[in-house]
Structures are given as structure tokens and as C-alpha cells.
């Protein structure tokens, strides 16, 4: 992609991969837990929430980055919130136009994207200090990382709690679903499981690096 064209801006593969892997918002930074736990009862909900957040993240980081030299530092947070709220409103309308049943399933968590710390964090820590292209690539990585995190939780919970994936039955008639997995406690169980897996993998790779 454009990664090779503009090496001067300091865009590396890591600009993108930071959010997907090294700083994954769900598994590493453990940010945005409110939507992560609440809407991941099914894979479809999880992906929709992830994509909505991705859209808000990328658009607001682009706008924040474009006006980064105009905004006085005293009012920067207020400005970022206005920008983020605007894109959340856009997403709100778009989801209603696409599917009302999805809109009802996601409920208040669409509006709550406004206060998602991943977005404000990216705007403040990255987009306000970097040129637009780099900010957008970084935001995309973060958004995709968040979506992957939500999908991992949503798919696990849907498979265990309903015996389905993306609405398709996996195990046939006689499967007795593990209902607690689609209830709030199940969210914590599954999240705990994934966090355990991730820190296990991290400690393994750190050990491996120490041995070399």
C-alpha cells in the first residue's frame, strides 16, 4: 500500500500492527471493556460494534490530525470530544438506516462509543502529534485490533452459549447450550480466558527472547 511511498513520515509496518498486536486494545491494554463485555453475545453484534468503533476511530483521528496545528492546547480535549461525538452520531444514523434490529441489539453502546477511551486516547496520544496518513493507518490498526478482540469474544460466547456462529447452528438439534456464556458472567469468563491465553503467549515469547 502507501507504506512504501512515504518513508519520510516514519510510517512503518508497526504503525499499523501496533494496535492489531503489540498494543491490542482488548487483549493487551484492556481498554474499552464496557462494549467489549456488553455487546459480545454474538459474533454479528461483536463485528458490528467493532466496525462502528473502527469508523469513528479512523474518521475522528483523520480530522484531529488535519486540524492538529490549529487547535490551541487549552481546548483540545473539548474539540476532540466534539469531533468524536459527531462521528458517533453519524454511525448512529447509519446503523439505523442499515438495520434496526442490529441497532436495538447494540442499544446504548453505540452512543457510548463517544466515551470509549481507545478513541480519545488515540486522538490525544497519536493523531494530534502525527500527519494525517500516519494517524489514519495507526487508527485503522487499533480499530481492527479492537474488532478482532470483540470477534474473538463474541464468537467464543456465541459458540458456547448458543451453539451457533454468525447465526448458523453448529452442533445440530441435540446440543445443550451453555447459556451462562451469553449472560454477563460469561463475558467475564471468556474475557478472562482470552487474557490468560494472551499473557501466557507473551511470557513464552519473552522467555524465548531471553534464551537467545
Amino acid at each position: 500500500m502507501s507504506l512504501k511511498k512515504e518513508p519520510d513520515e516514519g510510517i512503518t509496518f508497526d504503525t499499523f500492527m501496533e494496535g492489531v498486536w503489540r498494543q491490542n486494545p482488548v487483549f493487551v491494554m484492556v481498554l474499552g471493556m464496557c462494549p467489549t463485555l456488553a455487546v459480545t453475545v454474538s459474533a454479528v453484534n461483536a463485528v458490528s460494534m467493532g466496525v462502528a468503533t473502527l469508523f469513528v476511530l479512523v474518521s475522528s483521528c483523520l480530522l484531529v490530525s488535519l486540524i492538529r496545528n490549529l487547535v490551541p492546547k487549552e481546548v483540545r480535549i473539548a474539540t476532540y470530544i466534539v469531533i468524536i461525538a459527531t462521528f458517533v452520531t453519524l454511525v448512529d444514523y447509519i446503523i439505523q438506516a442499515v438495520s434496526l434490529s442490529l441497532y436495538e441489539a447494540l442499544g446504548a453502546f453505540i452512543q457510548l462509543i463517544v466515551v470509549n477511551c481507545i478513541i480519545l486516547g488515540r486522538a490525544e496520544a497519536h493523531a494530534s502529534k502525527n500527519p494525517p496518513l500516519k494517524a489514519v493507518i495507526n487508527a485503522m490498526g487499533m480499530g481492527i485490533g479492537f474488532t478482532i478482540g470483540l470477534l474473538a469474544l463474541g464468537a467464543t460466547r456465541e459458540i458456547l452459549g448458543a451453539g451457533k456462529l454468525f447465526g448458523f447452528s453448529l452442533f445440530g438439534e441435540h446440543f445443550q447450550p451453555w447459556v451462562v456464556m451469553v449472560l454477563p458472567p460469561g463475558g467475564f469468563f471468556v474475557l478472562g480466558g482470552w487474557l490468560l491465553l494472551f499473557s501466557f503467549m507473551r511470557s513464552r515469547s519473552e522467555k524465548g527472547a531471553a534464551h537467545e
Binding site: 480530522l63 486540524i67 490549529l70 487547535v71 490551541p72 481546548v75 473539548a78 474539540t79 466534539v82 469531533i83 461525538a85 459527531t86
Partner: peptide, 10 residues
Amino acid sequence: VTMGLVASIC
């Protein structure tokens, strides 16, 4: 001026 501008765009 900045906030006004941003608010109008939004």
C-alpha cells in the same frame, strides 16, 4: 474561533 470552526464542520 477554533471551537466555532470545528463545531460548524461537525
